[in-house]
Amino acid sequence: MLHQGPETVDRQAPRFVTISVSRQTEARAAVDEALRGIDVADSCFLLAFVPDGLSLDDVARALAEGGDGIPVFGCSTAGTITSLGYETEALLLLAFPREHFRCASMLISPLNPLSMERIAADVRNHATRFRRTAGRNRLALIFADGMSKQEDLLVATLEAALGEVPIFGGSAGDSLAFKETFVLQNGQCHSNAALLLLLETDLEFSGLGFDHFLPTEEQLVVTEALPEERLVREINGVPAALEYARLVGCPVEHLSPEIFAENPMLVRQKANYHVRAIHEASADHTLSFLGAIDDGLILTLGRGKAIIETLEAGLTVRNPRGAEPDFVLGFDCVLRKLEIEQKQLSAEVSEIFSRHRVFGFNTYGEQHCGVHVNQTFVGVAFFEPERREIS
């Protein structure tokens, strides 16, 4: 079921999740409108992705009061992906039906300082208590405070603790303010925290993860860093922002999120390159990153491929029987959105998202199977359950 408030988009709606959207600018009005599109009695839980223009505290209270006790999880965002594609001011609710989903939530707090041993033990206990159902598939979702600077250690810890259960997720945002972000659990907002959801479903699913960058020949070495703050002071023995600006051919005073989005740093892990995005250059020429950084780290300057073609190819997935996904839960980096807007491709990208039934939010970082990445689209494609013959 798909509900778009006053302007319904008549596309083929997903069958195994209900989508409801409100563009009201007051929290309670937005929640009331969005909840009218959902049968809460039929729902196992809701995901709420909240735009920066709405008070998350007010949204959380309104959902708790109006949701008839249904569990609600989610986070603040840097934009949502609705049935219309990219939006900046829309409240998005996704209702997962009881018939096809089970869920168990766990709040992880504090993130900073992060105790890997305690978190691993708590997660293993949480997974043990969430008893398996024969014939069902299991996955995990993680929503983390995007300003905690702990997602790298967190997701590695979760992967070790959960073993074969794949983990997908995104870091909460606040548009591009980079001040304070929150996760939401049952009427309460939390900073310096992460929310882990274990899901069990009879739907088939497939994880997605792709970016649109290729490595260049230009390599750099981090020669002075503050790893705990994700700050780089020097690259190649030169003040970091000055060296980066020289390499990308931009005056240092003109460095901006748009420049960073189009000229990312890549880190090689085995045969793969992952983006280590820059989000700010300080007056002292320090660069602030959205992913783990350390002294001696070798970085490679990235070069963009055609973003439309990589997006279309990445979302064109099928299950073993050749069927398209019923829907895709998507976590898309806000720096990708910035680049897309800069290139005036928003309408084309939104059409692709809408056609592939992608719903989710713009993030400050993405988590994909044990790795925290940037400037990447991460998602979970859900497919209709395989029909089993009854003997």
Rank of each mutant, 00 (worst) to 15 (best):
A13F: 04
F383L: 04
A27Y: 00
P227D: 02
A156H: 10
E180W: 00
L153Q: 13
R388K: 14
G37P: 01
L56T: 07
L266C: 08
L91E: 03
R357I: 09
P97T: 05
A261K: 05
L158P: 09
S109Y: 04
L176M: 13
A160C: 02
L139P: 01
V371S: 06
E117T: 13
A90D: 11
P264E: 14
P71L: 07
V252C: 08
L335G: 03
V17W: 06
F49G: 01
L255H: 03
I390N: 13
Q342K: 12
H100K: 08
T128A: 15
F213Q: 03
L2Q: 12
F49K: 01
R230T: 01
I81L: 15
Y273Q: 05
G79H: 10
S346Y: 06
G53W: 00
L162S: 04
C44M: 13
L287P: 06
P239K: 10
E159N: 09
R138G: 05
G85F: 14
E99D: 15
F45C: 13
L214R: 14
A41S: 11
S175Y: 11
L162P: 06
A127N: 11
P227W: 00
G69E: 02
V328H: 04
L111K: 11
H254T: 01
S391E: 11
Q219I: 07
L226N: 13
I19W: 00
E234S: 14
V21Y: 01
I307Y: 09
E224N: 10
E200F: 07
L94N: 01
F260V: 07
A241F: 06
F182V: 01
S391H: 11
E26K: 13
H279P: 00
E200M: 07
C333L: 13
L196M: 11
A41R: 08
D284C: 02
F73H: 14
P51H: 09
N125G: 13
V31S: 01
T18K: 01
E351K: 14
E164P: 12
F213K: 02
R230M: 08
L242M: 11
L94E: 00
E351F: 07
E386W: 04
Q4G: 07
I70T: 15
A240N: 07
R102I: 00
G146K: 02
E200H: 06
N137H: 14
V373Q: 12
S256F: 10
S171R: 02
P51E: 06
G173V: 05
D202Y: 03
H274Q: 10
E99N: 09
V349Y: 13
Q12H: 11
G322N: 08
L35G: 05
L54W: 05
A90W: 03
E180V: 03
R36C: 03
D294P: 00
G296V: 10
R388T: 14
A104P: 05
K337M: 15
K149S: 09
L47K: 01
T223Y: 06
S206P: 00
S288A: 12
L214K: 12
L195M: 11
P227G: 02
L154D: 06
S206G: 08
C369W: 11
L93I: 04
V222W: 05
A127Q: 15
S206M: 14
K179A: 11
N192P: 04
D152F: 06
K343T: 08
H254R: 12
Y364M: 03
K179R: 13
E217H: 07
F45Q: 00
L220M: 14
I390R: 15
V378C: 15
N192R: 02
Q344I: 01
D145K: 02
G322E: 09
A161R: 08
R138N: 04
N186F: 00
G187K: 06
T223S: 12
